[in-house]
Amino acid sequence: MNNKFDALKDDDSGDHEQDQGSPKDSEKEKIEDDDKEQIIIKKKMVVPGAGEHPLQYNYTFWYSRRTPGRPASTQSYEQNIKQIGSFASVEQFWRFYSHMIRPGDLTGHSDFHLFKEGIKPMWEDDANKMGGKWIIRLRKGLASRCWENLILAMLGEQFMVGEEICGAVVSVRFQEDIISIWNKTASDQATTARIRDTLRRVLNLPPNTIMEYKTHTDSIKAWEDFHGLVNASGGR
C-alpha cells in the first residue's frame, strides 16, 4: 500500500486505479498555477504538411512516468509529465508514433496520453472538468494493440460524438494495463454510451469485458479522500 500510495501521485495519469485497492490516484493533479504555465508551453499550432491527410483536430502526445522512490506530491505529476509533440495530419502522427516505444514495451509505471491540442491530460483542464472517462483494464500483453486501435479510432473520428472526445490514456502498471478515453461531458449519457459502443467495436472487445465509466469529479474526490486533502486547494 505504501508503494501504491507513492505511486498514486506520480503516475497518474490516466487512470486511476492503477493498483488495485488504491483509490484512484490522481490523474493529473493539481498543479500550482505557476506550474501550469510551464506545462502549457504554447507552441505555435502545427499544420498538416503539403499533400498530407489532415486530421479533424490536432493532437499532442504526452508521456509520464512515476519516479521511483519519490514521495507523492502535488508537484510530481506535473513534473513527471512531458509533452512529446503535436501533430496535425495522419503522416505527422505516424512520424511521432513510429519513434515512440509501444506501450506494451514500457517498463514501470508509465503512461502515454494523447489529447487534443490545447487540452491538458488533467482533470482540471477546462475541457475535462465536467467530464469523465471510460476505463478498460487489460491483462498484460494487450496494451500495444489496443492502444493503437484506440487512438486510430480517435484520430480517425470514429466515435462520432462531435467534439466530445478529449483524449486517451494508456497506463502501464504492474500487473495490468489500463486504457481510457476521456470526454467532455460526463452527464451526457447518449455520448458516453456511444463512446462505449464504439470502443467495443474498435477494440474488438469480448462482450463480457468490463467497462467502467468514471467522472473526473469522482476521481478527484477519491484522490482527495485518499490523501486527506478534502479541503485542500488543489483538487477543485
Binding site: 491527410h53 479533424q56 495522419v90 513510429s98 486510430l152 479510432a153 480517425g156 473520428e157 470514429q158
Partner: peptide, 13 residues
C-alpha cells in the same frame, strides 16, 4: 469530417 478508418490511417505508417 476528416474521418478515416483504421485501415486508411495504417497505410501511411
Amino acid at each position: 469530417k476528416r474521418q478515416y478508418t483504421r485501415e486508411f490511417i495504417l497505410q501511411f505508417r
